[in-house]
Amino acid sequence: MKIKKIISIFLYISIIIVPLNLISFAEELNLSDILYTKESQKNIIPISVFILNCSCRISASDGYVKINASVVGKSNVNKTSIIIKLQELKSENWVDIKISSKKIGGKICSSSNSYSVSKNHIYRAMVIVSAGNESKTLISTSQRY
């Protein structure tokens, strides 16, 4: 009898806790991601209007940090761009230490930059990709060198 009671309590607690954990993984909604239609229609939240794919990667070795970024526009896009910001963690704040940009008159833009860095510091890349009239900000994982 005690085992049945313990199992039922465990199941009851599991039923309450599992949905709470799933909710914690929800992504925060940006107001800039919402398209408004006619008042009689509901809001539409698109994944992307002009950007088909984008990426940002960072790696550190031998005194350098390398940042690779790319953006691919959808078929109706005729201009793309990338702004790369190398950031360093200083006093618990991310500070821009290098900035570069690249613009292309087509639907594919990519950039690969290497920067000299100091040892025992933490770096990350913040990349702003644009295609058509849409832009997204990507932030890489942080890297200690």
Rank of each mutant, 00 (worst) to 15 (best):
V127Y: 03
W94H: 05
K103I: 02
M1A: 08
Q87S: 06
S91I: 05
K38A: 15
S40T: 06
K90A: 03
H121I: 07
I13R: 01
Y36E: 10
D96S: 09
E27K: 10
S24R: 03
D33G: 10
P19H: 15
E92M: 05
C56P: 08
Y145P: 04
N120I: 14
M1W: 11
I84N: 06
A131M: 00
I13F: 03
I82Q: 04
S110R: 12
S110E: 10
Y115W: 05
Y12E: 11
V49Y: 07
I45F: 10
I128M: 05
N78F: 00
L52F: 14
I9P: 14
Y64Q: 15
S118C: 08
S61T: 15
L31Y: 11
Y12N: 12
G73D: 02
I58F: 13
S81C: 01
K5L: 09
N78D: 04
S75H: 13
G106N: 06
K79D: 01
G106A: 06
L52S: 10
E27W: 05
E88M: 01
I84G: 04
N53F: 04
I16T: 14
I99G: 13
T37W: 08
L20D: 10
S110I: 12
R124V: 06
L35C: 14
V65Y: 03
A69G: 08
I108F: 04
S61N: 13
V72Y: 06
V127F: 04
K66C: 14
S142T: 06
E92T: 01
K4S: 06
R144T: 12
I122E: 12
N30V: 13
S24K: 04
S114N: 13
N113I: 14
I13T: 15
V127H: 05
V129D: 01
D62P: 11
V117P: 11
I139D: 02
I47R: 08
S116N: 13
I67D: 11
R144P: 11
S111Q: 09
S91L: 04
I108M: 11
L11W: 07
I83M: 02
S32D: 00
S91C: 08
K2W: 10
L35W: 15
V117D: 08
T37K: 09
Q143H: 06
N43S: 15
A26Y: 02
D62S: 14
S112R: 11
I17Y: 07
S112N: 10
I67H: 09
Q41N: 07
N53R: 12
W94G: 01
T137C: 07
K103A: 09
I23W: 08
G73P: 06
C56M: 07
